[in-house]
Design a protein around this nucleic acid. Structure first.
Length: 864
RNA sequence: GGGCGCUUGGCUCAGUGGUAGAGCGUUUGCUUCACAUGCAAAAGGCCACAGGUUCAAAUCCUGUAGCGCCCACCA
């Protein structure tokens, strides 16, 4: 063994060895292994590369996977990647824009081809990076959300929802880019400060409907005396043409009496109501808000809750529509100017204030975003949410830390219907086929006036089917066209824990025959779905607790009538050293691969995990901890090196340290105080670590091991062992002890620092490893000796002796006191001097063994 | 605006109702035959602030302040 541990020389070699052994695959693990333990990885997006969050989350999952593998369970950690609809499409679009291309220029098929190319190139990159981290995933079971089998799962899920009546079509407000002629997601909207104005417009009150409001020309001429107004403030006067109400906050005293009354919408001369709504800010503008449900998100919300009319005055091209009357055809800005002018003439413009506000722009073309009502597809959530609420409420699914239970339940209890359609190209197409005769309008925006916001689910122009219907059932003549939309990326992610294990095919009794949906919840015996579902754990970040976790829960309960996982562990978010969120765009991220390169994978894993605590919300990343972990790994290496060197000095041809416990057992009476102390401590630690890992206290477990290995085993026992080995009588026992302890420590540490522990195991067991793995003829024999499939240590209670532990603590105190005294007296440590023992300590020092021990550890002659 | 969390030695963080702990940094001494990625020793903290519960509070409760994270909104 070298003087220093070199991760680079070992990690690749060891990883290849593990892969060759096949032990990542649960079917190839040695032994009976009746109980199973399974995790499906939160599939990383194909856009990214490994970041600190991944590093932490996957370290946690690997710790558990390795731990339960050592505990003799049939252990599966299933890896995979997510196509990540919007995110990936954006990345590729940005890439092709550098070539001067847009996706529309390329066309759908060619564009998708480009995305697949991207996927081939970068898709597996992050999985390769996980290997660097040491993750023991079963790569033979790796899945991608756009695999053919996976697509089948998605279609089955959709069709099932549809047949049960959960799917409906309805209006929804979206961010519409008039230039790109598409709806864009919230994350594609960028904000920019803009100097604009806030116009205060007076809306005349219509009192007791006595007052007949004339059209504006008449109004202009007659100049009637209107006394009462309600004034609204707006940055976008042109949208007033589509106003459906004025809203005030219900708490607002000034306006309380007006709620329920009507006002006259100037220019359009429509009667619109005054409604009360909590979303209206008391302190902004006049405290009264004009409501344009067709062109503003908040207004849409208020409109929906008050059942207001939707009047679309801005078309999908960004120009004023037919509903805008005389302003039809103008751009919004032109219309704005003219409307202001008209209001001024009418005397209804109270004032204009300069106002700086954020406008939303399309991320790609910087065109101002125009909120529009569009037709989208939804899943009705109320019923689906109930079992998911129940499962967590009665702890069938445990959420750790527990405070996130509330977050989860709050969301499901206030759930809104799930909009599952996206106007994207990259993803699963909706299995919806439209009658071409009935669907002539291409763009998804609704135009004109919608009477009421009622959900219309009249199925008179579409068919839901995995394949193209042969004949259109509606017009009987057209070739039905598949919906252009793709599904929300979370729709497919929601099926992840079971779709990756073979659902729904694993439930099909006969692959050829069509299976009724009811039967999809019974897995065929012996399939992965049967063997590994429900999974044991989902480890993830709190950011996607409802985007993903909640959806997996209700999907799983819907399709398989089972929970998808027994426990959800929400790990801490990693912040940068300044305590801020790590983000690529801010350039505040830290690259874990760089750290692995610098310190080794084990150090990164242990250093990260040591910074965490089970229930904590965030950790401020500190590279010094990684350094400390690197030093620890090296310390462990040198402890092993010391033991290896010591072993070579004695006759120990068997070198089967696994059986050392038996030898020690028979000799327990001949062991020294120190031997018994360290064996007691070891067993206490085994007990504690076992409990901590099972209880998700990884940081605490890591710290305890660090402390024990370094400051008890190395600082004390190893030093004492040197004296013991100098005595013939004690030599063999001491070496047995050393080997017994190191071997147990390797197992305890293996989940945290798998590479170095395996490497040490190979050295101590004299396994013959060649550059490319194990010698072929010896392969199986050698593989079975790998640490990765060792048996987790059982606690031997009879070794635990609290009396000896406390006695030894006293000895440590005496030693420390003497060393301190020597140091203060500036006596060189090696200089043997005499020391007068204090009274309290005398009792203990009567024992000859203790006295000798103290004298050896302090290089001091004790006198009484 | 809503939710959550944090505030302990110079820095990053542990911490059990009853004499404050670690790592890094600092100081002193070590070419001790496993390790200088090391060994031994030391200095350094009225545990954010104010109340309350208790024989006893860094630890439990209430409030205040600062910092941060997430979500929503910004007419």
């Amino acid at each position: 063994m070298d003087k220093q541990y070199e991760p680079k020389n070992c990690e690749t070699k060891i990883y290849e060895l593990w892969e060759k052994s096949g032990f990542f695959n649960p079917d190839r693990l040695p032994g009976k292994r009746r109980k199973k333990y399974s995790i499906s990885i939160p599939p990383p997006n194909i856009t990214g590369s490994l970041h600190m969050g991944h590093a932490l989350n996957n370290t946690i999952q690997d710790i558990l996977t390795r731990y339960y593998r050592l505990r003799g369970k049939k252990t599966l950690w299933l890896p995979g990647i997510d196509h990540a609809g919007i995110a990936t499409q954006n990345v590729v679009e940005k890439k092709i824009s550098k070539e001067g291309l847009t996706r529309h220029q390329l066309g759908r098929d060619k564009f998708i081809e480009r995305v697949w190319q991207w996927k081939e190139k970068y898709g597996n990159l992050i999985l390769e990076q996980l290997k660097k981290l040491g993750c023991s995933c079963d790569w033979s079971r790796s899945r991608f959300t756009l695999d053919k089998e996976y697509e089948q799962a998605v279609q089955t899920a959709f069709i099932n929802y549809y047949k049960k009546g959960y799917i409906y079509r309805g209006p929804r407000i979206v961010n519409w880019c008039p230039r790109c002629a598409t709806a864009i997601s919230d994350i594609e909207v960028k904000y920019q400060e803009e100097k604009g104005a806030l116009w205060y417009i007076k809306y005349p009150l219509l009192e007791n409907s006595k007052f007949q409001f004339p059209n504006s020309k008449q109004y202009l001429n007659s100049k009637p005396k209107i006394q009462k107004f309600i004034t609204v403030a707006t940055t976008r006067p042109e949208t007033m043409l589509g106003d459906a109400a004025v809203a005030v906050n219900p708490k607002e005293e000034r306006y309380k009496k007006l709620v329920g009354q009507k006002v006259i919408l100037p220019i359009m001369n429509r009667e619109i109501p005054i409604v009360a709504h909590r979303l209206v800010d008391l302190n902004f503008g006049t405290g009264a808000l004009k409501i344009t449900p067709a062109h503003d998100k908040t207004d849409w919300q208020i409109g929906k809750e008050n059942n207001l009319e939707i009047i679309n005055v801005i078309g999908p091209d960004g120009k004023m529509s037919k509903e805008a009357g005389k302003y039809e055809g103008l751009s919004t800005l032109e219309a704005r100017k003219k409307i202001i002018a008209e209001l001024e003439i009418l005397g209804l413009l109270e004032k204009t204030e300069e106002y700086e506000h954020q406008i939303s722009l399309c991320d790609r073309c910087h065109t101002p975003v125009e909120p529009q009502i569009s037709t989208q597809w939804f899943v009705q959530m109320e019923k689906l949410a109930q079992p998911a609420i129940k499962a967590v409420k009665n702890n069938k699914i445990k959420i750790i830390p527990e405070r996130y239970k509330k977050v989860y339940l709050d969301w499901l209890n206030n759930i809104e219907d799930w909009c599952i359609s996206r106007q994207l190209w990259w993803g699963h197409r909706l299995p919806i086929w439209l009658c071409q005769t009935a669907n002539k309008i291409k763009n998804p925006c609704l135009s004109g006036r919608q009477e009421k916001l009622k959900i219309k689910n009249i199925n008179n122009d579409y068919v839901v089917s995995a394949t193209r219907p042969k004949k259109c059932p509606f017009c009987g003549q057209c070739e039905m066209k598949q919906s252009e939309d793709v599904l929300d990326t979370w729709f497919s992610s929601a099926l992840w824990p079971f779709a990756t294990l073979g659902w729904p095919i694993a439930c099909a009794q006969n692959k050829k025959s069509k299976i009724k949906i009811k039967k999809y919840c019974k897995p065929i015996r012996g399939t992965d779905l049967d063997k590994f579902f429900p999974t044991s754990l989902l480890s993830t970040d709190r950011g996607i607790l409802y985007l993903w976790v909640a959806r997996m829960v209700f999907s799983s309960l819907e399709f398989l009538k089972k929970i998808p996982f027994k426990t959800v562990y929400i790990h801490a978010t990693i912040l940068n050293p300044e305590g801020r969120r790590m983000s690529k765009s801010l350039g505040t991220g830290i690259d874990p691969l760089g750290l692995i390169d610098k310190y080794g994978a084990d150090a990164v894993r242990l250093g990260l995990i040591i910074q965490t605590n089970r229930d904590q919300q965030a950790i401020r990343f500190d590279e010094r901890t990684i350094l400390a972990a690197r030093n620890f790994v090296n310390k462990l290496w040198n402890i092993s090196r010391f033991i290896e060197i010591s072993t070579k000095q004695i006759q120990d041809s068997k070198s089967e340290i696994q059986n050392k416990s038996k030898i020690l057992n028979s000799k327990i009476k001949t062991l020294t105080l120190s031997d018994r102390w360290i064996l007691s401590r070891l067993n206490s630690v085994i007990d504690s670590i076992t409990k901590k890992i099972a209880d998700y206290q990884f940081g605490e477990a890591g710290q305890e091991l660090y402390e024990f290995v370094w400051h008890e085993f190395a600082d004390w026992y190893l030093e004492i062992s040197k004296f013991q080995m100098a005595e013939k009588k004690l030599k063999n026992n001491t070496i047995y002890c050393l080997k017994f302890i190191i071997y147990n420590l390797l197992k305890l540490l293996h989940p945290f620092i798998p590479f170095v522990t395996e490497e040490i195991n190979i050295h101590l067991n004299n396994l013959t490893i060649e550059k490319n793995g194990v010698l072929p003829e010896k392969a199986m024999e050698q593989f079975s000796q790998l640490l990765i499939v060792a048996n987790w240590s059982a606690v031997k209670r009879k070794y635990i002796n609290k009396k000896i532990e406390s006695q030894f603590e006293k000895i440590k105190k005496i030693v420390a006191e003497i060393r301190n005294w020597k140091s203060e007296q500036k006596i060189p440590f090696n200089q043997e001097v005499e020391y007068q023992i204090q009274k309290e300590e005398k009792n203990l020092l009567i024992i000859k063994e203790v006295k000798t021990l103290v004298e050896q550890m302090t290089k001091t002659k004790l006198i009484s």
